[in-house]
Design a protein around this nucleic acid. Structure first.
Length: 444
RNA sequence: GCAGCAGUAGCUCAGUUGGUUAGAGCACUAGUUUGUGGAACUAGGGGUCGGUGGUUCGAAUCCACCCUGCUGUACCA
């Protein structure tokens, strides 16, 4: 505010962008370490692609408007549009097409990376976030799809979730595909609207979804959404068919069998799982958390899934004639962290530094001596940055949650025994330098 | 994008039917005789009351438009 008047730069962040603090980052690092561990065990290759791609390489539609399709951040560079990637699947497809002759087939890769979406943010949902993707390219075998599900649940459990706290929901695009054929729906737009409506069963329930399949629906705020305009008979058929409790399509029957061989049972067949993306062609899955997530005001909030994926046998073909059926999964890491932070107490070693107080600049040599002894022992240590009163130095140590300060003033230097003051209890005692490391290890 | 609600210090808010130099708590800074934090006490900094225009002798308070945030909804290739 008043930017022009006082001419100061804004300290506000752009909508949907956030500063991430240490606690969150440590949990994220922990999750990433688990992911890598599991990925190596499952034999996936690690890949990184750039943040920017040519807009036409990562979108199905070429940007022919003033700006490339809404939803991405783009700019024009020497007459070519560049976009920040909005997911990791599109860059993978581009990568496979570009390196088709060299890569092994099938090609298994995993990737961690920031993606950007120019959309409205929500709780735990930002415009810049970290995604984890694992994909199998070049095989139609449903064993690949099954393994992705098994693998993702292993990761979640390694992150501390129990079986009852998450579930993999599974379905297939073939179900709706066959249904639409049966109902003789031809209009692509109508089919798409219907799919999107069906995708909301979880959140809105059947009665609202039926409105969306028909003429439309008015939401709580009074806003009206146009529907797919299906006939009421067709809506009835959809509801009946999609309420079936057991799968009938070939692919699902097969993957269920594979799950059994894996001894994997933390999944649930749910024909209402649709997933918005158009490019899916077969089995689809979604990772859902079974506990309530709250926003920073403590209100429970619609959180949705933390990730999902499925089979996309035609996507890579967009780049040319490649025989590259594929299946993949992606997890929104920041969303997972957001949820996990509420659910779990993480005992993360934050190892805040021991602070060596500065009494007199002239004794800097002694301070540095102590500091290097401690650092050599692997103990996080710092000499108080500055020359303030002791009181200020103590306040500083307290603020950064240092476990202890070392007082090494005139008296201590004379006796050769620094005073170690533990900050939690306030206890302090004089300690021989050679005992210092051991004493400190007791309290951190 | 659409809809509902909201916008007063860094944070959480109070501010009576429009009336003089706009308040509190927390946080922050300095101090309480200077080698000691998390408690207490004292003092202090910080807001043109989201913006612009209007009504009025007078507006944080009323009106219009805009901006921003929250929630829902849509979109999310």
């Amino acid at each position: 505010m008043n930017k022009e008047k006082n001419n100061k730069p804004s300290k506000e962040l752009p909508l949907g962008f956030v500063d991430r603090k240490e606690k969150e980052l440590l949990i994220r690092d922990f999750i990433i370490s688990k992911i890598k561990e599991v990925m190596i065990k499952y034999g996936f290759q690690y890949l990184e692609t750039p943040s920017f791609e040519y807009s036409d390489s990562i979108g199905k539609f070429l940007p022919d408007k003033e700006r490339p399709d809404e939803g991405v951040f783009s700019f024009k560079d020497e007459n070519k549009w560049l976009s920040l990637r909005y997911d990791l699947t599109a860059p993978l497809a581009r990568y496979v097409a570009k390196n088709y002759l060299e890569i092994p087939k099938p090609f298994k890769r995993y990737q961690l990376g920031t993606v950007w979406r120019n959309e409205k943010p929500g709780p735990g949902r930002f415009r810049e976030f970290l995604q984890f993707d694992a994909d199998y390219v070049g095989t139609k075998s449903l064993q690949a799809d099954a393994e992705l599900c098994v693998m993702i649940s292993e990761i979640l459990e390694k992150c501390g979730l129990s079986k009852s706290e998450y579930i993999i929901k599974i379905s297939s695009r073939k179900i709706t595909e066959e249904l639409f054929k049966k109902l003789n729906l031809k209009d692509n737009q109508q089919k798409l609207t219907a799919l999107r409506a069906l995708d909301k069963i979880d959140r809105l329930g059947w009665s609202s979804v039926k409105e969306l399949l028909g003429e439309g629906r008015k939401d709580k705020s009074g806003d009206f959404t146009k529907g797919a305009n299906l006939t009421s008979q067709n809506i009835e058929v959809l509801e009946r068919e999609l309420n079936k409790k057991s799968p009938e399509t070939q692919d699902l029957l097969e993957i269920l069998k594979i799950f059994k061989d894996y001894n994997f049972d933390n999944f649930e067949f749910d024909p209402s799982v649709i997933r918005g993306l158009e490019y899916y062609t077969g089995v689809i899955f979604e990772v859902n958390l079974n506990f309530e997530v709250k926003n920073n005001k403590g209100q429970a909030v619609q959180f949705g899934s933390i990730g999902g994926g499925g089979r996309y046998d035609n996507l890579i073909n967009n780049f040319g004639n490649y025989d590259a059926p594929a299946t993949g999964i992606s997890i929104g890491l920041d969303r997972l962290v957001y949820a996990l932070m509420q659910k779990k107490e993480f005992k993360l070693k934050q190892s805040k530094p021991i602070v060596i107080c500065v009494f007199d600049k002239k004794s800097m040599k002694e301070y540095i001596g102590l500091q290097s002894i401690l650092r050599k022992a692997g103990i996080s240590t710092e000499i108080y940055p500055g020359e303030n009163k002791l009181k200020k130095q103590m306040e500083y140590a307290n603020k950064i949650k240092s476990p202890a300060v070392i007082l090494y003033g005139e008296n201590e230097i004379k006796s050769g025994k620094p005073t170690l003051r533990e900050l939690r209890s306030g206890k302090e005692k004089a300690i021989e330098i050679k005992e210092l490391v051991n004493e400190i290890k007791k309290i951190i």
